[in-house]
Design a protein around this nucleic acid. Structure first.
Length: 482
DNA sequence: CTAGGGTTAG
């Protein structure tokens, strides 16, 4: 029985008879179905067969599948390599960028550079965007120097260094809390790349992220001295910086100054203040500012509502948060995944897990549940002792909108020790094997806990298998995040 | 994927 006919029996796939250029039935190009088939294909032959079953392959389809395989790097790269042999398809620059991102994420830098070379030989890049991706990955792997180095060598790959890519470098450094390093680069190259208001804003935000508001203020002074006029974005960055650093009074004063100077306060400004006050417990002030913005004729956004809802969840009660949620629906807003995640987290926190799961179902009408949705619900199920329920939700992720990530595995494996059941440890071992197969590198602690557990429950054979697995990825960095 | 607001636990 062919892969397709077997699969169509199982999954009730839609098939077409007599397609234009083939005499076998082929799949309608639906990314969800194809991704699920790819996930089930455990050897190169069935994978290739699965790819040949689809027609036509388009750049959009390949991108959608790569996105779905985001948390299964090895499979994504395997797919990327096989689909390029398909006669009627040729990779787009965007697909290359995705694949490069994925290779870097699982720290397969050799594969990453191979892709860069291939991309170049096909004259599809690498583009400044490609470099931004690689710089971000190097920085998040703790290799900031390497990121600077590849920025410096961009031109050797036929990619022009310009203000855009320079700002991208600064941003990547700042977002990883390396504001000082970014500022160093900035001082050296600001003349050469003609640093603009965006460059200054990135640096100011970098200091704000490190809660160094005085430094951010200095950057703002410096830009004025050099004839670069701050924008509303600059002020919003500083405002957020004060709240983030816990300088509530300074934040409020800064907000008053902004109004006094007749800056056109926008929805971002208000949202910053609503959130800033709320998280310190000043719920009434939050609500007041919310009313004030409406009075001032500034329309709240979904983010504004989400901020207020989160504040109520954390500092008031989830019931009041739901009232605001309903109010936002009535006004015609469509909540997005962040809004739902905030409500779902609030419900979980109030130990209303069944209701949280109801909201997760309701969410599907407006947007897809995200990895955060699953992780929150799974985490609280586990904490509540509902481990079967957690595993049931976990199972639904394969074939759903997103695959489990490192956090998901850590949460589940961690909860396999609480019941002191031998079977749970077998599940933990199975999860460990699965996560390694998907390109994640478990911490040494995780390995040790599972190994000890298996030994204690008399599963020496399985423990040996896990030990062999550990040795295959022992040389890799121990901490692998996002 | 050149800048600002809303998701992460103890």
């Amino acid at each position: 029985m062919s892969l397709l006919t077997r699969a169509s029996k199982v999954n009730n796939l839609k098939t077409l008879q007599n397609p234009p250029s083939s005499n076998s039935p082929f799949l309608l190009p639906d990314p969800v179905t194809i991704t699920n088939l790819l996930l089930k294909s455990n050897n190169p032959e069935s994978l290739a067969q699965c790819i040949n079953t689809v027609s036509p392959w388009t750049p959009g389809l390949v991108q959608a599948i790569l996105k779905r395989l985001w948390n299964h790097g090895p499979k994504a790269l395997q797919f990327f390599k096989l689909v390029e042999d398909h006669p009627s398809y040729s990779h787009s620059a965007i697909a290359f960028d995705h694949a490069i991102d994925i290779a870097a994420r699982i720290r397969d830098y050799k594969a990453m550079w191979t892709l860069v070379c291939k991309m170049r030989s096909m004259r599809l890049g690498p583009s400044p965007k490609t470099f931004a991706i690689m710089m971000e990955r190097y920085v998040s792997a703790g290799k900031a120097d390497k990121a600077v180095k590849i920025f410096m060598s961009m031109h050797e790959y036929g990619c022009q260094q310009d203000l855009y890519s320079f700002n991208a470098l600064l941003d990547v450094l700042c977002k990883s809390k390396r504001a000082e390093m970014a500022y160093g680069q900035f001082k050296v190259f600001r003349g050469r790349f003609r640093a603009d208001v965006v460059s200054y804003n990135i640096i100011a935000n970098g200091f704000c992220l490190k809660k160094q508001t005085p430094r951010a203020l200095e950057v703002m002074k410096e830009m004025i001295e050099r004839g670069v006029e701050p924008t509303l974005t600059t002020y919003n960055i500083l405002l957020k910086g004060y709240f983030r650093a816990g300088q509530i009074n300074e934040g409020w004063e800064f907000f008053l100054q902004m109004k006094k100077r007749k800056l056109e306060i926008d929805v971002v400004t208000y949202t910053t203040v609503i959130h800033g006050f709320g998280v310190t417990g000043e719920v009434e002030k939050s609500r007041k500012v919310f009313d004030e913005m409406i009075g001032a004729g500034v329309l709240p956004s979904v983010a504004t509502y989400t901020a207020l809802i989160q504040v109520l969840c954390k500092k008031d009660c989830v019931e009041n948060a739901i009232i605001v949620f309903e109010d936002m629906l009535m006004k015609g807003y469509v909540p997005n995944a962040t809004t739902y995640n905030v409500i779902i987290r609030g419900l979980c926190h109030a130990e209303k897990i069944d209701m949280a799961i109801e909201y997760m179902d309701k969410m599907k009408d407006d947007c897809e549940p995200t990895i955060q949705t699953f992780n929150v619900v799974i985490r609280y199920c586990c904490e509540d002792g509902k481990i079967e329920k957690a595993l049931e939700i976990f199972d639904k992720m394969n074939g759903g909108s997103c695959l489990p990530n490192l956090d998901t595995y850590n949460i589940l494996i961690g909860s396999m020790f609480v019941r002191k059941k031998s079977d749970d440890l077998l599940v933990a071992g199975k999860l460990l094997i699965e996560m390694v197969g998907r390109g994640f590198v478990p911490r040494r602690l995780t390995f040790n806990r599972v190994l000890n557990g298996l030994m204690l429950t008399g599963n020496q054979g399985f423990a040996q298998e896990i030990l062999r697995l550990q040795s295959t990825c022992g040389s890799l960095p121990r901490h692998f995040r996002l």
